[in-house]
Write a protein that binds this DNA or RNA. Sequence first.
DNA 1: CCGCATGTGTGTCCCAGCGCACAGACGCCG
DNA 2: CGGCGTCTGTGCGCTGGGACACACATGCGG
Lengths: 246, 246
Amino acid sequence: MSSAHSPSQNHLLAALPAAEFDRLAGHLELVPMPLGAVLYEPGEQLQHAYFPTTAIVSLHYVLESGASAEIAGVGNEGVVGISLFMGGDTTPSSAVVQTAGHAYRLERRLLKHEFDRAGPVLQLLLRYTQALITQMTQTAVCNRHHSVEQQLCRWLLMTLDRVPSGQLVMTQELVARMLGVRREGITEAAGRLQHAGLISYRRGHIAVLERSGLETRACECYAVVRTEIGRLLSDVKPRQRLSAVA
Amino acid sequence: MSSAHSPSQNHLLAALPAAEFDRLAGHLELVPMPLGAVLYEPGEQLQHAYFPTTAIVSLHYVLESGASAEIAGVGNEGVVGISLFMGGDTTPSSAVVQTAGHAYRLERRLLKHEFDRAGPVLQLLLRYTQALITQMTQTAVCNRHHSVEQQLCRWLLMTLDRVPSGQLVMTQELVARMLGVRREGITEAAGRLQHAGLISYRRGHIAVLERSGLETRACECYAVVRTEIGRLLSDVKPRQRLSAVA
DNA sequence: CCGCATGTGTGTCCCAGCGCACAGACGCCG
DNA sequence: CGGCGTCTGTGCGCTGGGACACACATGCGG
């Protein structure tokens, strides 16, 4: 595993015109993202926006009761901290590192400055935000109407898109917390998937064996989000490595 | 009921600096919004953005199975058609008039133009968008964890904020479709609320009698969204008539 | 003012998912 | 290599909500 880091590992940054990219590059700071790290908590003033390269961040909402659910996930296709350029500065949700890795971060001030420029950077960020909105709406509908197994498949697929190896380091307990369901529900669903030969797992490690099987069992939500990301971020710079967007 | 229409009945428009407001005013077109009218369908290119004054619009998502759910609602505090300035042009969801009334609409081209100006108009729109995002995330979590009754209360309260009279024209069937639940579930929940003296209804009409009671029974989601709208849109222009924001 | 479409109230059955409780099983660390 | 913490499997009973099936109201249009 080569550890050569580059901002262009993040699709948003990679999609920027060279001039814009160069302008920002000097200000990007590579930071490690350990599992469980909290990038921000509800109402907290963000100091940086994070462009993940290998890390995956989960936008999470915790209710007063302690129950929680993932709102959306952000990997190397996006950025964490949209409220910085949206103007609200904070959000009622939090952001937690779901898969350890790295990200490039940009200071709050610099990002806010992008708003005034109203250039390609802002345009790209807003498009991404719309894709994120799609993800959120889909999550809302999915939560309402789809089974735990369908959602698990969707979640695995989305994570898979951000982890090329297909080897996820993830306990069932954590997955349950992501989806906002009972741990036992995941055990059962995952058991069925393993039995069907689609995945295999052992104590905190999940390996996807047959991606297509997951796609069959997943709800439409996965495809919708995937397609929408492709649509919104493709014509900015046609060739990204979103791979198999269909 | 005075039928004097004015763009300033929409809080976003009203919050604009005078110069900006005047610039747009000439291009705003007052349109009636009949119940059930579809402003856009999934994937459809929007031709206008709508700033409701008395109408309420429901952002809606319909699954392949036919099941559906409201993603968020837009009243005189907001605007329908954010994808126009976000850059995506279309969304996978649709927008349907949930309560008849009026709105001012603005042509696509003009709104897109606002993006390039990167002025107060865009800033306000983006802030509103963030509030909308909050509403969507809250919907997602609410769908996961809260009971039908709690959600009904939340929905009633949010609608109430947009209908000063407290007299809603709305069948249980429709409410059910909004929340993405069974009609019978609404019948039961509404029955309990009526029994408790909080609301009264008859064949397609719902009257709220005791707002505070609904607030008690609603989940936290209502307050979160309400507070966030207040926070995000208040310091643009302090005095809006969002009334009792708490 | 009658009738029928359209809302609303019930009741019954069923099941996914929750809460809880505990039994194994793995694997890391001393 | 042994022990313990963590993760996973399983078995309850319970319940909210879904699907379906009617019976009854209501009020609009003819």
